[in-house]
Nucleic acid binder design. Structure first.
Length: 402
RNA sequence: GCUGGAAUCGUCUAGUGGCAAUGACAAGAGACUGUAAAUCUCUCGCGCUUCGCGCUUCGUAGGUUCGAGUCCUACUUCCAGCA
């Protein structure tokens, strides 16, 4: 079972530590989105330097390219991409449901690769197998996203997610048993990573289904959309299955999120970590998420917006491509201690974006990722010293110009 | 000097009698939440009461025509070939 220590509580909010085979995550924490085993525009060294504690890769993308067998052969995700800290994988459910022409059956989902049109099928079982081959520390159950916001569709998606969760858990246990019974010792204990076991040993053991750590963990995913009765039902069901932790999925805006999280996180067991899937583009998402009991977050927003020239500051987002920054020789954010703000001016960033230099996206991504990671770090600190409410109020007032 | 060819929005470009005028780039602005996203959208002659209306535009000046960026004449400039 995944070890999660809670150090401090304040209402639903909590400060804790998730102990993974690749190290600890101090929570609340923002997890970098490394969909294709890379945080776009950034090296793992840069991610480490800006303070990131963990990354999340995507099973769907890695199945298509380079293929999960290749990642297994490489020694698992951490070895493959050079990130020797905690890793998550998303199941691929969310991506597949956003593709056109998907065929959903009770068994699984048939779809065409967005790259070359090749036919694929992912089932709860195959998603688990793929995630074990990738070998991240924490896996997400393969869930079903609703095709619309309607109650009927949400209910259907939630119920299928629950049935699929049962299959995910069965398959996960099977794979876990297989991993622990093939020579690497039962459990191996925390902090026993593939690299510590020894690359050669891992690579030469064809009987293992995973090249990652011997212990890998599964989060159930809570669905139910904006309907609190469905959320409650989903949280109860997921909790009853006793997974290692929980993903909260299908959330797209901070509006109404507080009530939803109150419902869900009051039901989920307190002693297991909760990951709010896909939220964190807006600082308010992180404040509300942490306040109402979420421990980790991931979001593509910070790096995507960085690549598109929209940069976070304490006074709100700045579109650095705007003409008004041509002669602005001040740092993007004077109080920021990221590599970008410490060394470069707005005018320089503006120039790099206008000339479409790769460095523009690199520096912007360093800043945005650092900003969001840092906001969550500050939330954690403020919860520890009981200054959360005042920090939240002053930050949000300034950021959203209230 | 002769003979061809060319001149259209900041730049390049489409246009062959119904046109405020095509496309690209540049420029200006906006969007982005478990990444088919280094992507996408909007504006881009001027002015308004802006799902429309008015005005002024395709080197310059005339002409033909109901109507001209498009046809004719002259001129200006540029390009190519020949002297």
């Amino acid at each position: 079972m995944l070890k999660f220590d809670i150090k401090h509580c304040d209402g639903l909010a909590r400060v804790g530590v998730i102990h993974t085979p690749h190290g600890d995550i101090e929570t609340p924490a923002f997890v970098g989105a490394a969909t294709r085993a890379t945080v776009k525009a950034l090296t793992m060294q840069e991610m480490n330097d800006l303070g990131s504690q963990a990354i999340l890769a995507n099973t769907y993308h890695l199945i298509l390219r380079p293929g999960t067998d290749l990642i297994k052969e490489a020694g698992g995700l951490a070895e493959f991409c050079g990130w020797h800290k905690p890793t998550f994988t998303d199941s691929g459910g969310f991506q597949i449901f956003s593709l056109p022409n998907v065929k959903i059956t009770e068994d699984g989902v048939k779809f065409k690769s967005h790259i070359d049109g090749a036919n694929f099928e992912i089932t709860p079982e195959s998603s688990m197998q793929a995630q074990w081959a990738i070998g991240a520390d924490i896996h997400m159950a393969f869930d079903h996203l609703a095709k619309s916001e309607s109650y009927e569709d949400m209910k259907e998606a939630m119920e299928r997610t629950h049935r699929w969760l049962d299959r995910c858990i069965t398959e996960h246990r099977k794979l876990s048993k297989s991993a622990t019974s093939t020579g690497d010792g039962p459990g191996g204990g925390p902090l026993l990573s593939a690299s510590e076991v020894g690359e050669e040993k891992v690579r030469q053991d064809p009987s293992r289904d995973s090249a990652g750590p011997v212990e890998q963990y599964l989060y159930a995913v809570v669905q139910g959309g904006t309907f609190n009765d469905l959320r409650a039902e989903s949280a109860k069901y997921c909790a009853s299955k006793n997974p290692d932790g929980f993903g909260i999925g299908g959330v797209f805006t901070a509006k109404g999120m507080d009530e939803m999280l109150k419902t869900v996180n009051s039901i989920l067991p307190e002693n297991k970590p909760r990951h709010l899937l896909g939220m964190g583009q807006e600082p308010i998402d992180l404040f509300v998420g942490a306040e109402y009991g979420c421990d980790t977050f991931d979001c593509v927003g910070p790096t995507r917006m960085a690549r598109n020239g929209s940069l976070y500051t304490l006074d709100g987002r700045v579109n650095i491509k705007n003409a008004k920054y041509t002669r602005d020789f001040t740092p993007l954010m004077p109080d920021c201690d990221c590599e970008c703000c410490k060394n470069y001016t707005r005018a320089y960033l503006h120039h790099l974006f206008k000339t479409d230099e790769i460095t523009a996206k690199v520096l912007a991504s360093i800043h945005n990722e650092h900003f969001i990671v840092h906001v969550v770090d500050q939330i954690r600190k403020s919860l520890k010293d009981s200054s959360f409410q005042s920090y939240k109020e002053s930050f949000l007032n300034r950021y959203y110009h209230k």
